[in-house]
Design a protein around this nucleic acid. Structure first.
Lengths: 287, 287
DNA sequence: CCCGCTTGTCAAATATCTGTCCAATCTGTG
DNA sequence: CACAGATTGGACAGATATTTGACAAGCGGG
């Protein structure tokens, strides 16, 4: 985003945002995407705000939306949502520092009400966990604060997970690798998967693979996920995982699930993007 | 309302769900599997919901069901997801009887997480208020229980309403008629309108029309809503309302806002369907 | 084996959507 | 003034979609 400049005429603006002047005018005329102020003579003058709007438009087009829909979205984002979740992130981290339970709930309430589950998980919950992790490593967040925040978030997510084993969809069994205690990402994945109609059996943190094996042979799931943040914890189980992978539709996930490891174990893996991953799984187009 | 909201045309949608456009149309025509909204020109626009429906359809086909059977199941599953809100309604009413604050919050959390704001308001919040009103009239619910429930719900909605006056969209001023104290429906309407990008100035319950008039002349809003459940309360202000209606874009709403009254006052009215009403207003196609 | 039914695919004729282009005219700066 | 750069409004073509109707492969019953 250009830092300088107050307002540009259409030629220079077009060059900077990479959209032809004709197209800019067409978007303005047809969708009202931009409403640049005018000089006395009638020349359009564009601001940084307009540039951001065009960026959103382009991004939406890249995702395959039609021009009309892309413009609708760019406008909607420009109006309210923009930055609301960034704001929420900052407030959530501040509330964690202050051990302010009510504030954390308030932020989460607001986020869940205003955005889809997927969006909140992807754009708020997971980033907050990352941020908290980073601050903890840097020593700017106490262990107690980290625990407070992640426990509260875990509780919230588990409240949403109620009865996620019920229903008629395909079954997924989710477990953290032995010694792995970060289960929130996995809960989030389960929630997204449930919203695609799956049933979830959640075995949680630090699950012995023998336990997992028993659960799998008893329930015959369409998907088994083993997650870890630490590749060493998965490496340590590589033999058992490879074996499990032969008898069940196993995937590994989490930051510890490297592509490299997946290849060696001959199992699939889910990448960092929760929503996409769940979408892919839901359609059974692994790999 | 997801930030990543956006409806896709059939080509891109087909690519994403892995079903040819022809087949999508055939499923629509033969089984009513999807009912995409249309552009003005008649192009189909598909949402995430539709994608999930197609996923279920494909899953059922994989299991060997015939197309007709698969479609029936996919549709049945879609309906059962919506049925979850009926469940939520019952639990919410039960929690109100029991003064169980935690339970009410839990139900609301779950509902907001699983459904869009519009859906929750339309299918859960407003029906609950109706139900509570009915029970109160019948004497099966104490005044205290009614107050407890509606205060809790009001708080939740107002928490979502934070900063709804901020932003760059058109402005709506919302007020209950003098002596009218039921403001929750109006809050809900404001929330939906905000999700369409409007700014909201909420004057709340029991607003003297003089106050409203001052606010209107100071802020020059694109829309003024006066709500009441009781047509008598509106009738009592008919002169003032007619006058206000000449100088501002006034609409009346709520159960007390009858078509008949609207005609006599020469103002528009909003009917009971919150979402439709907000959609109509948002596009400024009153009447 | 034929018949009827289901279901995925295809095609033709028509329409929409959207990026681009043009002509005639106006603006503003060296 | 000259001239690069803007303005509006209309027009156009190619990509995409729409509807309607047809067709063939697959399947089960008679």
């Amino acid at each position: 985003m250009s830092v300088h400049t107050g307002a540009l005429r259409i030629g220079e603006f077009a060059r900077q945002v990479g959209v032809s002047p004709e197209l800019l005018r067409a978007w303005e005329r047809r969708y009202g995407l931009l409403q640049p102020i005018r000089t006395d003579g009638g020349f359009r003058l564009y601001t940084d705000d307009d540039a951001r709007r065009v960026e959103r438009m382009k991004r939406a087009l890249d995702e395959g939306l039609s021009a009309a829909e892309a413009a609708r979205r760019a406008l909607a984002q420009a109006r309210s949502a923009e930055g609301a979740l960034d704001d929420a992130l900052a407030r959530l981290v501040a509330a964690a520092h202050a051990y302010d339970e009510a504030a954390m709930h308030a932020v989460l309430d607001e986020a869940f009400a205003g955005f889809s589950l997927e969006t909140v998980l992807q754009e708020l919950i997971l980033p907050v966990l990352r941020e908290i992790g980073t601050e903890w490593e840097r020593g700017t967040l106490e262990v107690g604060q980290e625990h407070f925040a992640s426990n509260l978030i875990r509780e919230r997510l588990l409240a949403l997970a109620r009865l996620w084993g019920r229903g008629g969809g395909p079954l997924a069994v989710l477990a953290c690798a032995p010694s792995e205690r970060h289960d929130i990402g996995l809960i989030a994945f389960g929630l997204v998967l449930r919203s695609h109609g799956w049933r979830i059996l959640f075995l949680g943190a630090d699950t012995p693979l023998a336990t997992l094996g028993k659960a799998v042979s008893k329930t015959n799931p369409q998907l088994v996920v083993v997650a870890s943040m630490d590749s060493a914890l998965l490496e340590a189980q590589s033999a058992a995982l490879r074996k499990l992978g032969r008898s069940a539709p196993l995937v590994i996930s989490g930051n510890g699930a490297s592509e490299d490891l997946a290849v060696r174990l001959r199992v699939d893996r889910l990448d960092g993007n929760l929503v996409d991953a769940a979408g892919v799984v839901a359609q059974r187009r692994l790999r």
